[in-house]
């Protein structure tokens, strides 16, 4: 059930173990086509995620036009972080790379919603699939609106069994 690099697919690069667990929940969505998405090894820090993206993924994305990439980071209440992250994305890949994450960190989101991270990840996938903003509209997630809109447009046609 491995990824077919010649067909549209998504790689998720999580910032840490908590982000990885959010991504696990996303993978558990019953309508998600698991062979179209792969969650990669956590980066241990948002800077590391960006470094890893630059060193390992830019070249691969250039040779693999069907690949989309989600950088799953924490914003730590830093309003400039999205711009700083976008700055490392080469112009010709901007439309295939998406920067998402919690406004502070996933633990705060977990505490706020009172559910495990996996359960929240499943809700985020459902929102994505149904074009809703129920959980994505949460105080700690709503800053992702533009990125999630862009991502949803790209992945809905192939990532979910609709």
């Amino acid at each position: 059930m491995k990824i077919n690099r010649y067909q549209p697919h998504v790689f998720v690069l999580p910032k840490d173990d908590a982000d990885r667990q959010l991504a696990n929940g996303f993978l558990l969505d019953p309508f998600l086509l698991a062979h179209k998405i792969q969650v990669l090894v956590p980066g241990e820090g948002w800077m590391k995620v960006l470094e890893c993206f630059k060193s390992d993924h830019v070249r691969e994305m250039e040779t693999c036009p069907h690949r989309l990439m989600v950088l799953l980071i924490d914003f730590d209440r830093d309003e400039d972080r999205l711009n700083r992250a976008r700055a490392v994305i080469p112009d010709h890949l901007v439309d295939r790379v998406f920067v998402l994450g919690t406004w502070r960190n996933p633990e705060k989101l977990k505490a706020s919603l009172g559910r495990p991270l996996e359960a929240i990840g499943m809700e985020l996938a459902k929102d994505c699939r149904e074009e809703a903003y129920t959980t994505w509209g949460h105080e700690l997630l709503k800053h992702n609106a533009s990125e999630i809109g862009r991502l949803r447009e790209r992945v809905r046609p192939f990532l979910f069994q609709l």
């Binding site: 059930m1 491995k2 990824i3 558990l28 019953p30 698991a34 062979h35 792969q38």
Partner: peptide, 16 residues
């Protein structure tokens, strides 16, 4: 590259 998908396929099926 198969391990994650294999485990997730089992986890997803048993969710139901």
């Amino acid at each position: 590259d198969e391990v994650g998908h294999f485990v997730m396929a089992l986890r997803k099926a048993f969710q139901l």
